[in-house]
């Protein structure tokens, strides 16, 4: 488990990085936190001949509020998303989901853009981005383009990014006042690899009625999955035991899980239902509607 040789560049600006991407094309891979890419390189399952290290581009690491959006640079560390007051205020779902990503030492190095670009189907941030309706700003030789989260994740480890593109910015809509967020996930044991998770942000009116529901499941398909049926069942309802049970059960029809060595497809489906129920109960408890 030693990496194959590669050529290494450490650009200091985004522009320089994009120019290197254009120059080296499909041979090149941008290196963000490296927490997913470097294991593959060590195992020689990935053998890029050029690595473009983004860790020396300070301009790619930022967090700011802008026109009702929480805007993150691709190199913003996951640990910062977890601890930032800006994030907690603007998008509490992100702050709630982050502690579930890897471990603190992984989040110290792992980045927002890295996790989203890697597109592991069971990763937390892609699920959160999908639930929140985030926008991905891709940059490449032809400039920038905006890809909605719904069109960003294609399949396992495959996104809408072209080989010469990289994720340059992520824009998360700020949570409306009165909304509540929760995240839950389950693995085959405690503290290890997550298998299935659900991210939820529910807008509630003053009567505690759901005016808008946004849920996405991770690990229950080849990409993160929006739980549209759950959302439909919930909208207009007060979150209480019966409505939650019905809404969570509806998730079973939204997901298309695959079997792998960790779990059967059936279990992943039931786990998605269970996690949907768990997040909705947590929100109901917080809102006092249950």
């Amino acid at each position: 488990m030693k990496p194959a040789p590669f050529e290494y560049f450490a650009p200091e600006t985004a522009e320089e990085a994009l120019a290197l991407m254009a120059e080296h094309g499909v041979e090149a891979r941008p290196l963000a936190g490296g927490q997913s890419l470097v294991p593959l390189i060590n195992m020689r399952m990935a053998q890029p001949s050029v690595l473009i290290d983004l860790n020396r581009c300070p301009e790619l690491a930022y967090l700011r509020g802008e026109d009702g959006m929480l805007v993150s640079g691709p190199m913003t560390r996951q640990r910062e998303l977890e601890l930032s007051e800006t994030v907690r205020a603007a998008c509490p779902l992100i702050a709630k989901a982050m502690p579930y990503m890897g471990h603190a030492t992984i989040r110290n190095r792992g980045t927002a853009g890295g996790s989203l670009s890697h597109a592991d189907p069971s990763a937390e941030l892609p699920g959160v981005a999908l639930a929140l309706g985030a926008e991905m700003i891709a940059g490449g030789p032809n400039g920038r383009r905006t890809v909605p989260a719904t069109e960003f994740f294609f399949a396992e480890l495959t996104t809408a990014l072209e080989p010469d593109e990289m994720l340059c910015e992520i824009r998360f809509p700020e949570a409306p006042a009165g909304s509540r967020a929760a995240f839950a996930e389950v693995g085959s044991h405690f503290g290890g690899l997550a298998l299935v998770g659900v991210a939820a942000q529910i807008d509630l009116d003053s009567a505690g009625r759901c005016t808008k529901a946004a849920l996405a499941a991770t690990g229950a398909g080849e990409r993160p999955t929006r739980l549209s049926s759950t959302e439909a069942v919930l909208t207009g309802e007060v979150l209480e035991k019966q409505s939650i049970a019905e809404a969570a059960e509806a998730a079973a029809g939204d997901v298309e899980p695959l079997e792998d060595l960790h779990a059967t497809a059936h279990w992943r489906r039931r786990a998605a239902v269970a996690m949907a129920a768990r997040v909705l109960h947590e929100i109901a408890d917080e809102a006092g509607t249950r």
């Binding site: 085959s188 044991h189 405690f190 503290g191 290890g192 690899l193 060595l261 960790h262």
Partner: peptide, 9 residues
């Protein structure tokens, strides 16, 4: 793929 117990288990 082969997981061993953590402090949470």
């Amino acid at each position: 793929d082969y997981m061993i117990p953590t402090a949470l288990d």
